[in-house]
Each structure stands twice: as C-alpha cells, then as structure tokens.
Write a protein that binds this DNA or RNA. Structure first.
Length: 657
DNA sequence: GTGTGTTCGCTTTTT
DNA sequence: GCGAACACAC
C-alpha cells in the first residue's frame, strides 16, 4: 500500500499522529479512538519509507497485544515478510539480559522464579532472620520489595527508604533475598527490569549496543509505565528522541503495581519539543454507553479534561439490573445469553462478562456449563497454578538450570523418594554456610558425618537421576514433548496421581492437565523456529503463551463467551458486555474504600475501562446478597452506579424502590 | 519418613 | 468453602 492508501481511512487527528514519525510525540487517545490503528499505520509508514522493520521497537502491555499488533502490521504492508520487534517490557528485558547478564554476575541460563516459589523463598528468608509471620508475612515482604525494586531502590539503601518497623525488617530481608536468588541463578519478575536498569547504568557499552538497535521507539498504554520502564525508555531513545507514546490517563489502572500517571501527564517536561495529538472520536461505543462513561469519569479530579465524542447511535439503552444473590445474577445472565443465541441470531463470542475479582466467575462458569454455552475464562493463571503442573514445571526448570534451588526443593521429594525435611534442612544449612551448591553440600555433609550414609545416598541417587534427565532433554533426536513424556513416565507421576486422589473425577482432571502440559510443549515446538527448553520456560513465566491444549479447545475459544477481569479486558472490545458485581466492596474494592481518594479514583477508572469495552450493549448488574467465605452477606450498590446515571435516572430509580 | 485428619486463614487487580 | 500448613500416629 502507498502512504496515501495507508492513511486514507484515518480521520485528521489520527493521520496527524500516524504521520508524525520524527521526534517525541504524545498521543492522548481515549477509549475506542483507534489508537492501535494509529500505531500500526505509523509503523507501516516507517517501513514503507525504507526503515528496516527490526529497527522499530514497539512496546505493548501484554504479549497478546503484541501478537495482535504484529498481525495487523503484516496485513497493512502486504505479503512482505517483516519481523518488527514488538514486545512487552519484560520480554524485551529478557532478550537483553540473555545476551548481557554475565557482567552482572549471573549465568546466561538464569531462570525466572514463579510466584509460588517466590513466596516460599520469602518465607525462608524471614525465618532465617527470625521474623515471626505475625509481624511480617511473606506476601507483605514481597509487596514491599516489589515496590522498592520498581522504584530502583537497591538493597544497600533500602534501610533509608523504610517508613516503619515492618519496612525496616523488609530492608534487612531484601539483601538476603537477593543473595539467595543470585545463588540460585534465578531472577524474579521485577529483577528483569531492575537488572536491565543496572546493566545500562554500569555498562555503557551494553547500553550503546541496545541503543544502536533501534531508530524508532513506540510505547502503547503509556499511562501504565512505572519508574524503571520510564528510565529504560529514556536511556534507549537518548540519541535520537524518536519516541512515540500512546495512552489515556483515564485508563490508568495499575498504580498498585508501581505505574505512575505522572509519566503521561508530564511527558512534555521530559521532552520539551514533544508534539501532542488528541484522539477524541470514539468509534467503539454507542452514544448511550459513552455518556455513561463520560459522566462516571468526570467524578475524578486528577485527569486531563477531555470528553469523547461518539459516532454511533444507540439501539439499546444501558441497563441496570438488580438480583437477589450472585447465583441468580449468573442464572439470569446465562438465561439471557442462551436466549439471544437461540432466538436473536447471536454468537457466543458476542458476549463478555467482566468482573473485579477472580472468585466471581465461579457462579457464571457453572451456569454456562449447565446451559452448554461455550465459554472461556481469559487471563486466568489457574492452569499453571495446579499442583501437577507446577511440579512438572519445576522438574523442567531444575533440568534446565541446575542451580535453580527453588525448583529443586519443590520436587526433591515429590513423588516421595525418602528424602525428608531433616535431611534437606541439614544440607541447606551447610550449603548456605559453605556457599556451595546443594549436591556438593550433600557430599560434604556425608563426609563430615553430619548426614547418615543412607539419607545421603537417596539424595545423591536423585542427583544421578537429574543428570540422566538433563542428558535426555539435551539430545536432539527427540522433541521436547517426547522428553517430557518420558520424564513423566520415569517419575511414575501418573500412578502417583491415581494413588493420591480418591475421587475418580479428580484423578481424571489432573491426568488431563498433565496431558495438556505435554500438548502445550508440542504446540510450542511447532510454533517456534528454534525450540529450547529454556525459552519454553521463559514463555510460561512471562505469560507469553498461546492458548495451550488441543485444537478443539482453540476452536472453542474463537466462538465462546469470554469471562475476564476488567484488568485483563483492557484494550479489548465486545459487542455485548455484562459488568457484574457492581457493589461497594467489590467495585470499588474493599481495600480501596478503606484507602485514599486516589485509590477510589483508580477504581473509578477501572469501572470506566469496563464500561468502555462495550460496543452495542451494556448491562450493569449487582446482587443484593453475596456469599463470602460461605456465608451470604448483604451488599450495598456501588456508588459508581449513581454516578453513571443522570440525575433524572437516579430520581426514577429511587421512586421505583 | 510417610500418611492421616484437622484447623486455620484467606480473597484485589498481573507483567 | 477450599486449599495449604500443622499435628500426630504409624
């Protein structure tokens, strides 16, 4: 396509944004104003002008968004094979660190620790400095460390940043936590950004190498960047300032994770020559839906003032529905969906059910299953949270990276192989004192008589087994999937599952998920040019996985009701949306209600994101009672419901009561 | 060291 | 109302 053809269907502001390719550019793009089109067109124009595709770096918020964007670019520039670098911040950092991390004292094949293992590591560290769990819980420690890390606070200076006793304890744990991670040659999620930041600060040559890779940089969902991400970008574009950022301050919903709206609000002070383009024509929602959204978000004080204009007339009003409890809420919505599919020629994929917390979908799930309506729960981590899956993942991690102690400790006695807690504790103690790897410490402990010959031998036998598996995964004459299946067989893991669970149904689902894991390894092998165990593990850790499992499941995904949290719905749109559980304590969430005005404002933005996902039809629902910890509790309708409705609608609602 | 029964505690949101 | 962590018996 010619440049003229590429921009023909854009409106004037969109065209302005897409064609401004040199220098800093801020695109303030409201919900549904076509920002993805602007970014992809912009990339296509650059490529058309002769810029090599891989010299444009595009950072997106999720891997899913990255894949979609790559697809759109390919459509725009035709058949030509292009490989633009589209990636999330975290995936980008993994790429950089896999090349450069050695100068920071790690080995290249570092593993990324998962959330569960992170918690056990935190627990272990707290124990080692004798902190009671009642004083500081592992989860709380991790939250504090994460906040420090995303602000670039080093262990050495953490003590100065401690605001109270708990944080002071956390500052002591910080050092230990980092040391242990390093000894395991593991990094956690925040480290990916933090280490890259350190790398750039301490090793100008490494920074130079990365800077030289890109002539143009674009960031999507810029309102959700945190301090480290901002620094990373600043460093990368320093020589040319060809930086285009796109975002919407009204959709900033990740402050709890360190995102700072100030980056988008003060873009011009960092880049004084920056041009600003506003996109305010909404092509997604009907005018009714947009009115609701605009009214709601106008209650926020901290924002750029803007009002989105709609381009679509409503056919249906926005509906507000009250149900007696959460089961009825699910039943009635299930009924309506099945009616619309059967009688109104609707597809399951037209519908999305959005909610605030991950416990909410349960009721909907069983309702939809009962009615045999295809559905999929998106963004749910649950598959990789299952015990079997985490065990097998740990096996693969310890096979890939012998120093990954978190993985080792998880599976060393699963299935049981006569290695008890006392044995492990003795070895660990020695390993920490000597600073030696686990199995070396084992041999030393046997030699010194600290460990009985019998106990020691079971550990060393396991080491031998690990070596065999490692060799098996390293051979090129069988696929990763085959190796994994052989591993499962040699562990007798399936009979272990059959033995462990009484309920045949439980055994069945667990065996199935093991099959699914093996299938997903096969999928990965097929998809990727150069499949390696380590990069499979990276994909899983970074949430960069395609829908795993069989082709059957994929078909289902394409035409199914989508169930997802509002957070994971960001950037998506659906013809018919149900925004459920509009209750005080849920949306706004209890924690925010107890918090500051800013916390409530973020919840309001979250509601705004939910509302603006809907293209044609929006239904807001709440239940008068909702079960919590098994007991039904009375609820109060969300304040946002009142804010969304016009004064007249609110009066009518009161009269109807 | 392994297998069991019981209590406790917990529920934001996720790259 | 479920799963993990603990206590206790073999």
């Amino acid at each position: 396509m010619t440049p003229r053809e590429l921009t023909a269907s854009l409106n004037p502001s969109q065209r302005d944004a897409a064609t401004t390719v040199e220098g800093p550019l801020l695109v303030l793009a409201g919900a549904g104003t076509g920002k993805t089109r602007v970014i992809t067109t912009r990339m296509a124009l650059l490529i058309n002008r002769g810029t090599a595709a891989d010299r444009i770096l595009s950072v997106t918020f999720t891997n899913k968004a990255a894949k979609e964007m790559a697809e759109r670019i390919r459509e725009l520039i035709g058949r030509r094979k292009v490989k633009p670098l589209i990636s999330t911040f975290h995936s980008l950092c993994v790429k950089i660190l896999r090349d450069e991390i050695e100068v920071l004292g790690y080995r290249k094949n570092f593993t990324i620790i998962d959330r569960g293992d992170q918690e056990s590591l935190a627990r272990e560290v707290l124990r080692s400095i004798r902190v009671q769990e009642s004083t500081l819980k592992p989860g709380d420690l991790l939250a504090i460390l994460s906040r420090w890390k995303t602000n670039g606070v080093q262990p050495e200076s953490a003590g100065d940043h401690a605001l109270d006793d708990r944080e002071f304890l956390a500052s002591m744990a910080y050092r230990k936590y980092c040391d242990r991670l390093r000894a395991r040659n593991s990094v956690d999620f925040d480290d990916l950004l933090l280490l890259t930041d350190q790398l750039f600060a301490k090793h100008p040559d490494a920074l130079k190498r990365q800077q030289d890779k890109f002539d143009y940089v674009q960031i999507d969902e810029y309102q959700d960047t945190n301090q480290l991400q901002f620094r990373l970008i600043q460093a990368l574009v320093r020589s040319h300032n060809n930086l285009c950022v796109v975002g919407d301050d009204d959709q900033s919903i990740y402050a709890w994770r360190g995102a700072e709206v100030k980056h988008i609000l003060s873009f011009q002070s960092h880049f004084p020559t920056a041009k600003i383009v506003r996109l305010e024509d909404n092509y997604r929602c009907t005018d009714e839906i947009l009115n609701v959204a605009n009214r709601l978000v106008s209650f926020n004080r901290e924002r750029h003032h803007k009002v989105l204009r709609s381009t679509k007339k409503a056919v249906e009003p926005v509906r507000y529905e009250k149900f007696s409890d959460e089961v009825t809420e699910a039943e009635r919505i299930g009924l309506e969906i099945s009616y619309m599919i059967a009688k109104k020629n609707r597809q399951p994929s037209d519908f999305a059910i959005l909610f605030r917390t991950n416990e909410q979908p349960r009721a909907f799930e069983s309702e939809l299953r009962r009615r045999q309506i295809p559905y999929v729960i998106l963004g749910s981590q649950s598959f990789f949270d299952r015990k079997e899956i985490r065990d097998l993942m740990a096996y693969m991690r310890i096979i890939s990276q012998p120093r990954d102690e978190s993985a080792l400790l998880r599976i060393i006695n699963t299935p049981a192989r006569s290695i008890g807690t006392t044995t492990i504790e003795k070895i660990m103690k020695r390993s920490i004192i000597e600073g030696s790897p686990f199995f070396e410490a084992t041999r030393n402990a046997i030699a010194s008589g600290e460990l009985s010959e019998r106990a020691g031998q079971s550990v060393l036998r396991f080491e031998e087994q690990l070596k065999t598996w490692r060799a098996m995964f390293a051979t090129t004459n069988q696929s990763l999937g085959q190796s994994l299946r052989k591993l499962i067989e040699s562990l007798k893991y399936k009979s272990e599952v059959e033995r462990s669970y009484k309920e045949p149904a439980q055994v069945q689902t667990r065996l199935e998920s093991i099959e699914q894991l093996a299938d997903s390894v096969d999928d990965y092998t097929r998809r990727v040019a150069n499949p390696r165990l380590q990069s499979f593990l990276d994909e899983i850790a970074l949430n960069d996985r395609d829908e795993f499992g069989t082709d059957k499941k994929k078909e289902l995904d394409q035409n199914a009701v989508k169930l997802l949290t509002i957070h994971s719905a960001k950037g998506l749109e659906f013809p018919r949306v149900y925004l459920v559980g509009m209750e005080e304590g849920l949306l706004p969430h209890k924690r925010s209600v107890e918090g500051t005005r800013q916390d409530i404002e973020e919840e309001r933005r979250l509601a705004y994101v939910g509302v603006t996902r809907a293209q044609e039809s929006l239904t807001l629902t709440f239940a008068e009672t909702r079960r919590k910890w098994g007991k039904p509790r009375k609820t109060v309708p969300s304040r946002f419901l009142f804010e969304m409705r016009s004064d007249k609608q609110n009066e009518e609602a009161v009269e109807a009561e």
